[in-house]
Amino acid sequence: MKITIVAGARPNFIKIAPIIKAIEKNQSEGKTISFRLVHTGQHYDKNLSDTFFEELNIPHPNSNLEVKSGTQAQQTAAIMIAFEQELLENPCDLVLVVGDVNSTMACAIVAKKLNIKVTHVEAGIRSGDMTMPEEINRIVTDSITDYFFTTSTSASENLLKLGFDGSKIHFVGNVMIDTLFQNLNRITAPIFWDEFGLETGNYIVLTLHRPSNVDEEKSLQELLEGIDKMVGDKKIIFPIHPRTKAILGETNLNLKNILFVEPQGYLNFMFLIKNSFAVITDSGGISEETTVLGIPCFTMRTTTERPETIEIGTNNLVGISIENLTLAFTTFLENGMSKRGIPELWDGKASERIIDALLKV
């Protein structure tokens, strides 16, 4: 079986690493399976791309399509044109896509039109928010997928309700958690740890990148100043995305607690998360990692495609206003965190289940 694995953005790299390890394990056992890794170049900043390949021991891509940035349409079109040529020159039995970025959808469409089977890892998750580009990517990708691998029973149920063949839906767990477990003994403090006087539990990690939170300079400024005031004497480490940094520009911010740092590699970032007092984010993936690590998480969104992180995990969905965030954070300070657990099959073995299932079909 020849598999082409597609990765394009930071979350993808975290998800493909354990899948590749599982393939290599099967190869060492004499199984007839091989892979070709294609990096679309959707994320091309070294801190958002190359560092993850190095730290997670992901093999150098066989091909980098180098599409870089652009509007949604421009980027998707560029990926499709380049990936079509890639598949024509390097035929395969199966294209494996992960997550919900533009690369996921674009490459799935190209593969399907070339009559190549499509596997979607992290299939079936839904936020119900059609203003999110990721939601459209999920819906389109799933609509043409042949083999679905889900992170939760609710994701599997979403697919069943849409009429997909249950025999093609495999509940395997969460590959992001595979990567977390495989690297927990390798995480390391970032270079600014001592400089900022950081200690376990004396700081909060902040990440923001969604348009609803960062696209308007004045509202972003007000949000940051509100968070800065809300946390009392806790430091806030904010690895700021290049796009968010550009929006802020030379804005004069009145901040005493927020410390801006460059985007972090996986090992440094997971160290920050694991040792934090709490996390404030608008990322879905981070809420999965905080759930497993038992770190309180406050997600600044009105919807989530990962309901299990709220029902079972440590995630709190607080909307996008500083007032709602402050209320939720204050309640947490007063009452603490209720006892939470880890979702079913988030045990570090999802990638093994995926490859076992693919070898059978």
Rank of each mutant, 00 (worst) to 15 (best):
F192E: 02
N183I: 05
L224Q: 00
L220E: 09
F181D: 12
E216S: 07
L208I: 07
E225H: 10
S219G: 02
L198V: 07
I191A: 14
S219L: 01
E225K: 05
I191C: 12
N183V: 04
I187V: 15
R210T: 07
N202E: 04
R186W: 13
D215P: 10
Y203I: 03
P190G: 03
D215Y: 09
L220R: 08
N183H: 10
P211W: 06
P211H: 08
P190S: 06
R186Q: 15
D215R: 09
D194A: 13
L180F: 03
R186E: 15
V205L: 03
E216R: 08
D215F: 11
E222M: 04
T188M: 14
I187K: 05
W193H: 14
E222D: 06
H209P: 10
T207A: 01
I187Y: 07
R210D: 09
E217V: 13
L220A: 13
Q182D: 06
N185D: 15
T200A: 14
N183Q: 08
L223D: 07
H209N: 12
L184H: 04
E195Q: 04
Q221V: 03
Q182M: 02
P211C: 08
H209C: 14
L198N: 01
N185F: 13
F192T: 03
R186T: 15
E216M: 07
L206N: 01
K218I: 10
E199S: 12
Y203N: 04
T200D: 15
L184C: 02
A189G: 11
K218M: 08
L208K: 00
N183E: 11
K218D: 15
F192N: 05
I191M: 13
K218H: 11
P211I: 09
E225L: 07
N202A: 00
E199T: 14
A189W: 09
Q182Y: 02
L180H: 03
N202S: 02
L206R: 00
L208D: 01
T188V: 15
W193Y: 15
D215V: 14
G201D: 12
V205N: 01
L223P: 07
G197P: 05
E222F: 04
E199D: 11
E199A: 09
G197S: 08
V214W: 02
V214I: 13
Y203T: 04
E199M: 10
E195M: 02
E199K: 13
S212I: 12
L223Y: 10
K218A: 14
H209I: 14
T207Q: 02
G201T: 14
T200Q: 15
Q182F: 01
N202T: 02
P211D: 05
F181G: 09
N183A: 05
S212W: 05
L224T: 01
N183L: 06
I204W: 03
G201W: 11
G197E: 06
D194L: 10
N183P: 05
F181Y: 14
D194F: 05
T200F: 11
L220D: 07
E216C: 06
G197N: 08
R186S: 15
Y203P: 00
E195S: 04
E225M: 09
E222Q: 06
L184F: 04
F196Q: 00
S212M: 11
L184G: 02
P211Y: 07
F181R: 11
E222V: 00
E195C: 03
L180E: 02
S212G: 11
E222S: 06
G197A: 05
L198R: 01
L223F: 12
F181V: 13
P211E: 06
L198T: 03
L220H: 08
S212E: 12
E195D: 07
H209Q: 11
E225S: 07
N185M: 12
